[in-house]
């Protein structure tokens, strides 16, 4: 199955994402440069990877969200293409308006880099259906701007419609509702601060991230 990773200047988890995709599909993903104007039609799943696109200038993800390729990604996602945004990828998807809310500076001011324990707030999505809803999972976080914010109305709406997918057991960044990951209303665009691509091999210290890739790829 053909997948793709979008690469921005200063993405730094693009190759980890590529390894995760190749591990789960047996096929190397297309690496799509942000200046490209379109995503090839054979691509069935796209990862927007972590990193520090454009040096986090202006706001994390703000400049990358204006990239030519994002315009096409947005259109294809609206037509149903599954997209996973990880860390900076999550920031980019919120800045592009593909997911609600925004990611602000961590409440504790510090960059947090550690294993985070997550609860499955929704194990019925295309990205999480292989998880046991009662099970907590360990996925690493590494970010400075992971403090999820949405206004009260938006928060009520996404909580009410099952769009909150992951919550921190021990909130590392001040996110409202302990939110670590959310999905769009249509259920095909997931954004999360923790890095599932860094938890797919026993040598990573755990493989709890693997089911995200297996779930979404298995749904295609």
């Amino acid at each position: 199955m053909q997948t793709a990773v979008i690469v921005f200047p200063a993405s730094n988890c693009d190759r980890d994402a590529a390894v995760a995709l190749e591990t789960h599909t047996g096929k190397a993903p297309h690496m799509i440069w942000h200046k490209d104007t379109s995503i090839p039609d054979d691509v069935r799943f796209v990862v927007v990877p972590g990193g520090f696109s454009y040096g986090d200038y202006l706001r994390s993800g703000a400049i990358a969200a204006q990239s030519p390729v994002i315009k096409d990604l947005k259109q294809k996602a609206e037509a149903g293409l599954p997209v996973l945004g990880i860390c900076n990828g999550f920031q980019i998807l919120t800045e592009a308006g593909m997911l609600p809310g925004a990611l602000m500076r961590n409440a504790g001011q510090k960059f947090v880099c550690k294993i985070s324990r997550l609860r499955l707030a929704n194990a019925q999505t295309r990205f999480t259906k292989l998880y046991d809803a009662k099970h907590e999972i360990d996925i690493p976080v590494a970010h400075h701007d992971g403090n999820y914010f949405a206004d009260d109305d938006t928060l009520r709406r996404i909580e009410g419609s099952g769009q909150v997918v992951f919550r921190y057991v021990d909130n590392p960044n001040g996110s409202r509702g302990d939110i670590a990951g959310i999905i769009n209303q249509a259920g095909n665009v997931l954004g999360m601060m923790p890095h599932p691509e860094r938890a797919i091999d026993p040598l990573h210290g755990g493989t709890d991230g693997s089911n995200i890739f297996k779930s979404i790829l298995g749904s295609l």
């Binding site: 800045e95 809310g101 914010f149």
Partner: peptide, 9 residues
């Protein structure tokens, strides 16, 4: 509106 501010926050 398009770039300089994120009007969500």
């Amino acid at each position: 509106e398009k770039l300089l501010a994120n009007t969500v926050i």
